[in-house]
Design a protein around this nucleic acid. Structure first.
Lengths: 147, 147
DNA sequence: GCTACAATCTGTAGAGACTACAGGATCAAG
DNA sequence: CTTGATCCTGTAGTCTCTACAGATTGTAGC
């Protein structure tokens, strides 16, 4: 008796994959083109067929993008996950990303506070003089960093 | 006695402005072109001259971009800050973006935890089998949202 | 098996937000 | 007043997708 399931997930086509992960149809082909997704197996008529691993990989990419990682950063993370490079690399890259993530969280928290205060203020009185520009245009105290 | 300072900030040129806020030289012109920054006064020789208000406005735009606002969202925020539209608009826009910001913070916190755990794990043993893909490729429980 | 319509194929073009370059004018330090 | 840095304008390129066009394939119903 084979260990393989009778229904091991029926191999998705490109449209099904896109729908199931919630991205645009063409994005899948784009990621394949730039080498983030491997060339998948094809049907007789050259239609791409995706298995569960590819679904997982695509979800990882999309999630990373949503969280503000660049394509190249994701490429690096994937390379690590694919086993290229040892634990030292993993440690370096993850802690490095961790710093970026921490900074973003701090920035967003600050923005959250500003937005809450602005909303509260604006809900109360009718002044057209909103504090948002003042609050958000403060010069950063840390050295400039551009992505 | 005038309230104006004798040295009210010496009017920056484009390069000085860009350096002082930490953005690219051409970005300033780009924002002027799409109407986020007003046409500044010029010198006799048509060189742009920026005062403190413009610096503040540009910093606001850049900060907004860093935090994930689109150009059009920033345009709306600036319009509000410029006094076009009432407090109802401010309230709507800010609370709306507050939701986005909250979700981003939550996502980033989760990623932070994953990255910390990965780093800790990888620092200890030499296994090339890192948990990062598994952790980050989990299907989202919330309905899909693409920007 | 045949028909019809959806889905996929390829290549290319467009959008959004910048960023770089070329050829010339201007500014300011010496 | 010279000279090298900075700025001018316009245009073209980059990055990350997204859309379209025309041809091919997949599949459900007859």
């Amino acid at each position: 008796m084979s260990m393989q399931q009778r229904n091991p997930m029926p191999l998705l086509r490109r449209g099904e994959l896109a729908t199931s992960v919630g991205c645009n149809l063409e994005t899948v082909r784009y990621y394949e083109g730039i080498g983030l997704l491997p060339h998948p197996p094809r049907s007789q008529g050259r239609h791409r067929l995706y298995d569960a691993d590819l679904v997982k990989r695509l979800r990882f990419i999309l999630r990373g993008r949503e969280l503000g990682f660049s394509i190249e950063e994701i490429r690096a993370l994937l390379a690590i996950a694919d086993g290229a490079g040892g634990c030292a690399d993993v440690y370096a890259l993850t802690t490095q990303h961790l710093d970026v993530v921490k900074r973003k969280i701090a920035d967003l928290r600050k923005l959250q506070r500003i937005l809450s205060e602005t909303a509260a203020h604006c809900a109360r009185d009718a002044s057209p003089d909103c504090p948002i520009i003042e609050a958000m245009s403060a010069p950063p105290r840390a050295p400039q960093r551009r992505h």
